[in-house]
Amino acid sequence: MIKTTALFLVTALAEIVGCYLPWLWLRQQGSPWLLLPAAACLALFAWLLTLHPTASGRVYAAYGGVYVCTALLWLWRVDGVPPSRWDLLGAGLCLLGMVVIMAGPRTGAA
C-alpha cells in the first residue's frame, strides 16, 4: 500500500506541474517555453498511470484522493494559501475513500 501511495503521489505531482506551467504561461504572462516541460510532465503523468497495479477504473478513482491532498499541499506551499479546516476535512474524506477503494475486497458483487 505504501508503494502504491508513493506512486499516486508522484503521479499527482506530474499532473499538477503539467497543468500549472501552462497556467503560468496563460495567466501570469510566463514564457511560452514553459509549455515544453509542461508537455513532458503530462507525458510522465500518462506513463505513470500505466504503472499502477490494478484495473484502471479503480486506480483512477483511488488516485483522486491522493490528487486532492496533493493539490491542497501545492496550494499551500506554492501559492501560499494555507488549507482551511474544511479543506483538511475534505482531504481526509478523500483519503478515507482511497483506502476503502484500494483495500476493499475484490469480489464480483457489491
Score class of each variant (00 low, 15 high):
Ala110Cys: 15
Leu7Ala: 09
Phe8Ala: 04
Val17Ile: 06
Met1Gln: 09
Gly30Glu: 06
Leu49Gly: 10
Leu26Pro: 00
Ala55His: 13
Leu48Asp: 05
Leu51Trp: 13
Leu93Cys: 12
Tyr67Phe: 14
Trp23Ser: 02
Leu42Glu: 08
Thr11Asp: 01
Pro32Gln: 04
Ala39Val: 10
Tyr60Pro: 13
Lys3Arg: 12
Thr107Gly: 15
Leu36Lys: 09
Gly18Met: 02
Leu24Trp: 01
Ala62Trp: 03
Met102Val: 12
Phe8Leu: 03
Cys19Asp: 00
Gly30Asp: 05
Trp86Glu: 08
Met102Tyr: 13
Pro82Phe: 02
Leu26His: 09
Ala38Lys: 05
Cys69Tyr: 04
Trp74Tyr: 02
Met1Cys: 09
Val59Cys: 10
His52Asn: 05
Gly18Ser: 02
Leu34Ile: 01
Val59His: 13
Ile101Cys: 07
Thr107Arg: 15
Leu36Gln: 11
Pro37Asn: 08
Lys3Gly: 09
Leu9Cys: 12
Tyr60Asp: 08
Cys19Tyr: 01
Thr70Ile: 01
Ala39Asn: 13
Leu72Lys: 06
Ser31Leu: 07
Phe8Pro: 00
Met98Gln: 11
Leu44Ala: 14
Tyr60Thr: 10
Ala71Phe: 03
Glu15Thr: 07
Ser84Cys: 00
Leu73Met: 01
Phe8Asn: 00
Leu7Arg: 13
Phe8Val: 02
Leu93Gln: 05
Gly57Leu: 03
Tyr63Trp: 10
Ser56Ala: 15
Asp79Met: 09
Gln28Thr: 02
Leu42Asp: 10
Gln28Met: 12
